[in-house]
Design a binder for these strands. Structure first.
Lengths: 121, 121
DNA sequence: CTCATATGGTTTCTTTTAGATACTTACTTA
DNA sequence: TAAGTAAGTATCTAAAAGAAACCATATGAG
């Protein structure tokens, strides 16, 4: 059978998930975790510009969706490691592709932008 | 040489582009345009729940970034067609993958969510 | 002639979200 | 004693998203 879900439908639950994935910070977090578990403050240092609040919120949502796993180690001070779940790793390729497309095509985008801006106002 | 751009850097211009791509509506628009040119109101009808304002804004931004092309035909009333640019088509696979991952994995996500919600509060 | 429809938008207003900053608890090291 | 690290909350403000109405122009229905 076909999928019961349709991303083009307004009230389809997939819309909620797309909204989660289609987020700059979520993509950067998922991309960063591809090479293995990373701790909270390491993520904060690596993903430059993210605030603690947004990092915390985004991690919680991604954990709730089963895309990543949060593990607490009773060290002093406590250590919290985040890693991709099995489900999360199925996104690896698409996430990388999207997150790094910009790096590969930035020059073309910048050219398009200035061409656009120089057209008649 | 390596890329001059790094998506993990705060002030890197790629962040602006990632922010554009990492948008629910932008992804749905790019996905919808993969099969050929589509007119404004057709997009509005197909992508259920999008408002005219957001559709208009998102199309404008994607056009400015050179990802899609806007073509006006002097019919009555005027016809405006949007289609993927060459640059835009290079995103096809990643966009499809991300936009439709939710349809394929929705059940797993819903299960993860209720499991999460049933844990200790 | 008037009403309803279609086109592709813009304007306005309200609600939601994001971002910046400061604070918290607990322990270690200089 | 003060500063640093860890993993977060809480609070406040600025920006963005969403809903709804409006606009110009034109055609077809009644």
């Amino acid at each position: 059978m076909e999928f019961a879900y349709d991303i083009y439908e307004n009230r389809c639950p997939t819309r909620l998930v797309l909204d989660r994935l289609a987020d700059k910070w979520a993509l950067l977090i998922l991309d960063r975790l591809q090479s293995g578990p990373v701790r909270f403050n390491q993520l904060k240092r690596d993903i430059k510009g993210i605030s603690q609040k947004v990092l915390s919120q985004t991690l919680k949502k991604l954990e709730r969706d089963g895309l990543l796993v949060r593990e607490v180690f009773p060290t002093v001070p406590v250590t919290v490691e985040y890693s991709l779940s099995e489900l999360g790793t199925t996104l690896n390729e698409s996430v990388s592709a999207l997150a790094h497309w910009a790096e590969h095509n930035m020059d073309a985008v910048l050219a398009a932008q200035s061409e656009y801006d120089n057209r008649a106002p």
